[in-house]
């Protein structure tokens, strides 16, 4: 064996290094860290996230960086086109459209996020209990949801507006009264699927109560679809608000939301297009941002869709 000169001393038995073999060299990655790595690779979703950050930042600081107030009338300067003074122009009462746009962003985003969070809370509890308890409880709870779902949405909203009066609270209530059902169905489906998994059985044999099983095992493992649904509920709520405001069922002036601004701007479309253009553009951008983030999350959070 000329290939191996002077290697006699290498041929001694040293045995295994089993302890070494148990070692895990890879860095520890939690589910969320790994999901983030996947999300980061999705350029469109990252663009959406960036866009959303810009929108939220502007909603926070936007009204303060111009010297105009969103509610102050200045009839001398009504319907000004965008200029150095008024970056997005002014409306028919001379209010600064830039300030109003970001004030509107606050309201639109607030409505969207509030509605989505309320949906989330009710949906998780309702769907979680229905799915976990199963049988009769499930049957009754889901039938109630079906009945609520059957009531025409617009009708319900109009009735609520008439009874409770127009306003932010009514708007959110109107949206969540049936909005949670979608979330409840998602959660129930997940829970039904997960509750027969062996890790849930293991927890049951250890003596865990329903609460622990639901909140330690079932819900955390449903977070993927829940989060995706959540991010897709927000733009729907924003759009619904805009739509209702557009119909005149929304907020009262001088409160501005993108919906009311668009509604005000429509009659003046031919002469003062910026009054519609800005709020409409930002509605689109926001909805776009949430949608691509939702899609990105869906891919990142579902191991089956990961490459």
């Amino acid at each position: 064996m000329s290939a191996l000169p002077n290697k006699k001393d290498k041929f001694v038995v040293v045995g295994s290094q089993a302890d070494h073999a148990e070692k895990i060299n890879k860095p520890s990655l939690s589910f969320w860290k790994e999901a983030w790595l996947h999300f980061k690779k999705n350029k469109l979703a990252m663009f959406g996230a960036l866009l959303l950050i810009v929108l939220i930042t502007m909603a926070a600081i936007g009204p303060h960086i111009v010297k105009y107030d969103y509610a102050t009338n200045d009839l001398m300067n009504s319907n000004q086109p965008p200029s150095k003074e008024h970056w997005f122009g002014t409306d028919d009462l001379g209010r600064d459209v830039f300030a109003r746009t970001w004030e509107g962003a606050r309201i639109s985003l607030f409505i969207g996020i509030a509605a989505a969070l309320i949906d989330l809370a009710i949906g998780i509890i309702w769907g979680g209990i229905a799915g976990y308890k199963g049988g009769r409880v499930d049957e009754i709870m889901m039938r109630i949801a079906d009945i609520l779902y059957g009531i025409p949405n617009l009708l319900m909203i109009i009735i609520l507006m008439v009874v409770l009066g127009q306003g932010l609270g009514t708007m959110i209530l109107a949206m969540t009264i049936t909005g949670w059902i979608g979330m409840a169905r998602i959660v129930r489906g997940q829970v039904l699927q997960l509750k027969t998994q062996e890790f849930v059985l293991a927890s049951r044999t250890l003596g865990a109560d329903s609460r622990r099983i639901l909140f330690k095992h079932l819900i955390p493992n449903s977070m993927g679809p829940i989060l995706v649904t959540l991010t897709l509920t927000i733009p729907t709520a924003i759009f619904t608000e805009a739509f209702l405001s557009f119909l005149g069922l929304g907020l009262n002036p001088p409160l501005a939301s993108w919906g009311t601004m668009a509604s005000d701007g429509l009659p003046a479309l031919e002469y003062f297009p910026w009054r519609l253009f800005f709020p409409a553009t930002f509605i689109c951008l926001t909805i776009f941002a949430f949608n691509v983030i939702g899609d990105g999350l869906r891919d990142a959070l579902d191991p089956r869709l990961r490459k």
């Binding site: 890790f199 059985l201 293991a202 044999t205 955390p220 977070m223």
Partner: peptide, 23 residues
């Protein structure tokens, strides 16, 4: 019941499904 749960335990078949992936 809790006491009983302590005294009797189970080991499951599928090593991939029997541990909660989020814990």
């Amino acid at each position: 019941l809790k006491e009983f749960n302590r005294k009797m335990q189970m080991i499951f078949q599928d090593p991939y499904a029997s541990l909660n992936p989020r814990m």
